[in-house]
């Protein structure tokens, strides 16, 4: 009889495994969680420049005010947002009666998440008169 190698077995298990909405929510929660844990270490390390005084800190912050870093912060906000909304869903499932309507909770989280994500993007890029990122992007390509 044909014997699958461990690699083939693993691959076919992954492909065959039915990923329902709950599985995707679970997987994304883990991936975003790992990303955010890595980020908080970098974040604390960056903020250590607060101890070096105003010049060092403000110089570092000016770097992160560039449009592509604002975009990165927006994506980071997306990770935080998903992890937060799905985390609330998990708490409702674990402490309430959410197991009966966990799919509806996920669809609700996705809809609310997309709205808040776009809203935050608007605030970050266009919400500040003194930081007109759109014209900064345009001038940086001219």
């Amino acid at each position: 009889m044909y014997q699958k190698s461990p690699t083939q077995e693993w691959t076919s298990n992954v492909v065959r495994y039915k990923k329902f909405s709950g599985s995707w929510a679970w997987l994304l929660h883990r991936i975003t969680g790992l990303g955010l844990t890595a980020y908080i270490l970098v974040h604390i390390n960056t903020l250590a420049s607060l101890q070096e005084g105003p010049e060092a800190f403000n110089a570092k912050m000016q770097v992160f005010m560039q449009p592509h870093w604002i975009f990165a912060a927006w994506i980071l906000f997306g990770l935080v947002l998903y992890h937060t909304l799905n985390g609330i869903r998990i708490v409702i499932i674990d402490f309430g009666k959410g197991a009966k309507y966990h799919k509806q909770l996920l669809y609700g989280a996705v809809v609310i998440g997309l709205i808040v994500f776009l809203w935050m993007g608007y605030i970050m890029f266009f919400g500040h008169a003194e930081y007109d990122f759109l014209s900064m992007i345009v001038t940086s390509y001219n």
Binding site: N58, I123, H128
Partner: peptide
């Protein structure tokens, strides 16, 4: 930190 960038990104 993000409603007003000045709040989060200025040492003062």
């Amino acid at each position: 930190m993000h409603y007003n960038p000045e709040m989060g990104h200025s040492f003062n």
